[in-house]
């Protein structure tokens, strides 16, 4: 009797919300078809996939591709390259914080707005645009810097083909594109600080620098910690479009990262490498998922709100 009533109420609620389910349907369908459906193909990583016989009938080989992966010197090169780029970009982590602190000190609202308009802009540009601008700046014949060097009697330098500075260029590009956008979250944190604290510090004779050091920085520390931990979660991911666009024959070995390898050997050169490249991709996905979950645990166990 009770169960029947309960079932009745479930049915009634389902019926009541039928239009609501209809509203959510397109979104759910897209997520299912383009995120969950491909996960079925991950089976490929455990077989020698042959497109002619299909996913179901391809021979199952267990962990063959994974053991090949861990014995492949290319794999360690890719891992090492990724980590080098990530660690270098970790050094630039304070850049948006410094920008936010500087912006916060500006008195003139109009000037602040102008600067913000300029520094947020690169976030909305594609990597194609950013890489093209880099080309116009650094290429050997058409680059602005080389034109200046040549016209003042020096010799042109092929910056974009120089293995020793390619990481430096990549990191500068990322900072240029992301510093303004990254500062927004810190500006919001600074805006939330109680102004009374600054007033009290001023009365106690603290100067500007001391207020920043003893009030602003401690107050935004939780935000800084969250952002840093979240960044650690993406340490084995690089901005793939950027790296792909910056790659050329001479710096190739420095910019060989997982996705570039998967794209060039899996997608570009046909289906013979599908299984192996899927295994590489799966390794990367699993490790990043573990990293993101771990970092989120750390964030929330410290009483802060992570992305979950």
């Amino acid at each position: 009797m009770v169960a029947a009533q309960k079932r009745h109420s479930v049915l009634a609620r389902l019926l009541k919300y039928r239009w609501l389910y209809l509203l959510g349907l397109p979104g759910m369908a897209i997520l299912f078809v383009f995120h969950y459906l491909p996960m079925g193909s991950l089976v490929m990583a455990f077989e020698d996939y042959d497109p002619w016989v299909g996913l179901m009938n391809s021979p199952f080989v267990g962990l063959k591709h994974f053991s090949k992966l861990f014995n492949d010197s290319k794999f360690y090169l890719m891992l090492w390259n990724t980590l080098k780029i990530s660690i270098l970009s970790l050094i630039t982590f304070p850049a948006p914080i410094i920008l936010a602190l500087l912006l916060n000190e500006v008195r003139s609202a109009a000037f602040k707005k102008t600067i913000q308009t300029a520094v947020y802009l690169p976030h909305f540009l594609s990597w194609t645009i950013v890489v093209s601008l880099t080309f116009f700046l650094l290429s050997s014949e058409q680059g602005l810097i080389n034109k200046i060097i040549v016209s003042s009697g020096g010799e042109a330098h092929a910056f974009l083909f120089d293995k020793s500075i390619i990481y430096f260029i990549i990191v500068i590009q990322s900072v240029w594109k992301g510093v303004g956008w990254g500062s927004i979250v810190y500006l919001a944190a600074i805006a939330g600080i109680d102004q009374g604290l600054y007033e009290a510090a001023r009365i106690d004779g603290a100067n500007k620098f001391q207020s920043i050091l003893h009030i602003t920085l401690p107050c935004i520390l939780p935000t800084v910690a969250v952002m840093l931990i979240l960044k650690m979660g993406s340490i084995i991911s690089v901005d793939f479009e950027q790296v792909l666009l910056m790659t050329n024959a001479l710096v190739k070995e420095k910019l060989e990262v997982f996705e570039v390898y998967i794209y060039q050997n899996g997608v570009k050169s046909g289906s013979t490498q599908f299984s192996y490249t899927t295994a590489i991709g799966m390794f990367k996905s699993v490790v990043s998922t573990i990293l993101v979950i771990t970092t989120n645990r750390i964030v929330s166990s410290n009483g802060m709100k992570g992305i979950m």
Binding site: V10, R13, L14, Y17, L20, G24, M28, L31, V33, F34, H35, Y36, L37, P38, M39, G40, S41, L42, M44, E259, I262, Y263, G266, V267, F274, T277, T278, G281, M282, K284, S285, V286, T289, V292, I293, I307, M308
Partner: peptide
């Protein structure tokens, strides 16, 4: 909507897509 049936499950499934992706080759085959 809080009292929607299946809300919790759907919510989790949506969040999971943020955590884990099948990768380039499975997406391509799809």
């Amino acid at each position: 909507k809080d009292d929607l049936i299946g809300r919790g499950v759907i919510n989790k499934l949506v969040m999971f897509t943020m955590l884990f992706g099948a990768g380039m080759i499975p997406n391509f085959i799809n």
